[in-house]
Structures are given as C-alpha cells and as structure tokens.
C-alpha cells in the first residue's frame, strides 16, 4: 500500500524524489492517527530547512502534529490547495495531500530513511 519508490521517516513523513526535487507529505498511517485534518501550516517558499527541522504542523480538531524535514534543502513550492482543502491529506496522503517541495541540498540525507517495505515492517512493530 505504501509507494515502493517513496522514502519514509520514523515520524511518518514520506519523501518522493525526482532529480534533486523532494516532495514531502505525511503517510497514510499518520493521517489515520490524526483524524480529520482541518489545517496545515506551511513554511514560506525560499526557507532553508535542515534535516529534522520543523516544516510546519498539521491539525485535526483535537490534535496537532509537527511535520519535520526528512531531508535538507530549500523550499521551492508549497501545496496551496491545502489552504482551502486540508482534507486532501486524509483523502490522498501520498498524492494530492503533499505538503511541500524542496530542492535537496544533500542526496546523502536519503540514506537515513526507510524504503516502503522497511516502513511497513516498522509500522507492524508499532501496532503490535
């Protein structure tokens, strides 16, 4: 169920890489934990993020979850649609629910992340 070509973090962010562009969102598991998303706080374009720096936060009615940068780089785009339709994070977490795009500063950052199969194993460990 988790896209094979994505990378994942233990905090449940995903990264999809295209050249030096990284698209970042939260995993299906994370959106289910949060419940109905009502607001997504996003950074300004041009902001430079280090690994594990806060990108922003995602809010449901009764919870807030911070989103951390899985890789370092400069923010090149934010998903403006989430401003009016934050529910995309619930409906299509790995697609239309993407949060930001980064121009990656260091490809090596990806080395610390999990591939889909490992992430699924990691999730099994959490739920049992």
């Amino acid at each position: 169920m988790y896209p094979q070509n994505f990378y994942f973090t233990k905090d449940h962010e995903w990264v999809a890489v295209d050249g030096d562009t990284a698209t970042i969102g939260i995993s299906d598991f994370a959106q289910k934990q949060l419940g109905d998303v009502v607001f997504v706080e996003q950074p300004e374009i041009g902001k430079v993020l280090a690994v594990h720096q806060t990108i922003g936060s995602i809010e449901s009615v009764k919870a807030v979850s911070e989103v951390f940068a899985p890789v370092s780089g400069e923010v090149t785009a934010i998903n403006a649609e989430l401003g009016t339709a934050p529910e995309a994070v619930n409906q299509d977490p790995h697609g239309k629910g993407w949060i930001i795009r980064l121009k990656m500063a260091n490809q090596a950052d990806l080395g610390a992340l999990m591939k889909a199969a490992d992430y699924e194993k990691y999730l099994e460990g959490l739920t049992h």
């Binding site: 607001f39 809010e59 449901s60 009615v61 009764k62 807030v64």
Partner: peptide, 12 residues
C-alpha cells in the same frame, strides 16, 4: 480552533 489552546498544544 482549540488546537491553539493549552489543553492540546500544551507549552506551545
């Protein structure tokens, strides 16, 4: 909008 408030966001 209670995610702004202490019972959810605590010290933040």
């Amino acid at each position: 909008l209670s995610t702004r408030e202490q019972h959810i966001r605590r010290e933040k």
